[in-house]
Every structure is written in C-alpha cells, then in structure tokens.
Amino acid sequence: MSVGGLLVAVLQQVIDGVFLGLFYAIVASGLALIFGVMDIINFAHGDLVMISAYFVWLISTYLNIDPLLSMLLVLPVLFVLGLAIQKGLINPVLGKEPLIQIAVTVGLGFVLQNIALGYFKAEPRGYPNPVFSEGLSIGPFVIYESKLLSAAVSVLVLFLLDQFLSRTRLGLAMRAVTDDRSSAMLMGINVERVYLLTFAIGMVLVGVASGLWMEMGQVWPYLGTSFSLVSWVAVALAGLGSIRGLAVSAVIIGIAESMGSLISPSVKMAVVYLIFFFILWFKPRGFFAKR
C-alpha cells in the first residue's frame, strides 16, 4: 500500500471511529447519569438498550414507520419503565454493597435477555428499509448516513442534557446530589424524587440510543453484552460529572476500536480494554472528572 493509500485508510478508520464513538457516547450517557447521581452499579445497562431496541422494532414493523419515529413513541414508555425499575429494583439496593447491586442488576440482565429470547426468539430483528441507509462518497472517503445521523443526534441530545443539568432546577439538584449527597439533602433537595427522575431520564437516553441503533443495525437477545462493558469503559475514561468529557472519551474508544479492526476485527476489543487498564492505573478518576 502506498503512503497516500495508507493515509486514506487510517483517515477513513478515524472517521468511522469518531462516528462510532459519538454513538457510544449516547449509549453510555444514561449509565453515566445514573451512576453519577445515584452511585448505583448497573450491569444491566446494555440489556436495557436491547429491550428498548425491541420496542422500537415492534412499533416500526407494526406501523411501518422509520425507527427514528418509533423511537419518539418509545421514549414515554421507557420513562415509565424507568420509574418502575427504580421503585421496584434499584431503590431497595441503593447504598448497599456494590456486590449486591451487581447481583441484582446482573439478575435483571438475565431476566431481560431471556424474556427477549422467549418472546422475540433468537433471530435478529431489524427494520429493513430505514430512511438513512445510503452512503455519501466524499473523495476517497465514505460517510454513512445512518452513522452521521446517529452522531449528530447524539451530539444534540448530549448538548441538551448538558444544558438541562446546568440550567434547570432539577438538573442542578441532580448535580448537587452527584457532588455531595448529604449536603444536598441538608439543602432540602428531595433526594428520593431526584433518584426517581434520574433513572427515568437515564432510561429515556437509553431509548434514544436504541432508536439510533435500530437505524443502523438489528437487535437480538444478547445485543446488550456488547454495549455494557464499553459503556463502563467510557464512564471510567471520562470520570464523573462532565458530559463533554464523556463524549470525548467515547470518541477515543471509538477510534481505538476502529483502529483495532485494522489489526484484526477479532481482537479489536483487546485494544479498547488495554487502554482501560492504563487509565485505571494512571488516571483512576478519568480525564474529565470534576471531583
């Protein structure tokens, strides 16, 4: 391969990686929010994305509309589901040992996976003709509409989230709880209510991620495992409390993964996790932590 060819190859992988990373950012945002505010260790995050993607698929095929539209219909459902999960499962284990939280959320993950397996069967489900399914050729590069779109939506939603957290009463309350739980309580913040809404909003973010995913790919019962660990790595890299930091970290992961596939797609995740190792060793609070 010539030098120019190599350059094109690397640049193309970087472009792919940036888009992938921005998508990971929206996937991880729900986890980051929930973990940051509530300090709950959620190992079922990927499985929640999976279940939500099935909702999107159901509506899309039933009404024959694009996944992006059905996503809008799914969001309220997820909000309510978030309230229910928080009330029923998460609240009882708040503040418990991390191991217990892991056990409960892993249990939730198992339940979701196998409900999906029993109800939707193991076949991957996808919407065959999403609106954004073409590619744009710019010089020697290819840009995928669906990935461009997911990146754009992701940036928009993260921007809104950032504004929400810094401008609204509820958002400020959430941040106060993130920073210092007990003083937030002393300041008269209804922590219980903040938790409830945090989880519900986290689920809405999950819904957005799943809608974007269905525009690009399909859902199957074990889809979640692919997203869970990566989301955690993004959160580790970013540290708590910064949405911008999360986006940058997720992009780094996306590029690492994309470059890893130049070596061999079979081992690309090893590259991502090795980065994770070094981050934890040398920058245990992440790059963008505010506390």
Binding site: G5, A9, L20, V142, T225, E257, S258, S264
Partner: peptide, 20 residues
C-alpha cells in the same frame, strides 16, 4: 482474508477496507 467476531456491531471499518 478478514475475520471478525460474530457479535460485531460495526461493520464499516471492514467494508471500507474491502472497498479499498
């Protein structure tokens, strides 16, 4: 001769390679 894991979620790096 490219290999990848079956649960891959992003094909574009591979497709771009093939395209080149």
């Amino acid at each position: 001769h490219i290999t990848y894991p079956y649960d891959i979620t992003d094909m574009s790096p591979i497709i771009d390679q093939i395209k080149r």
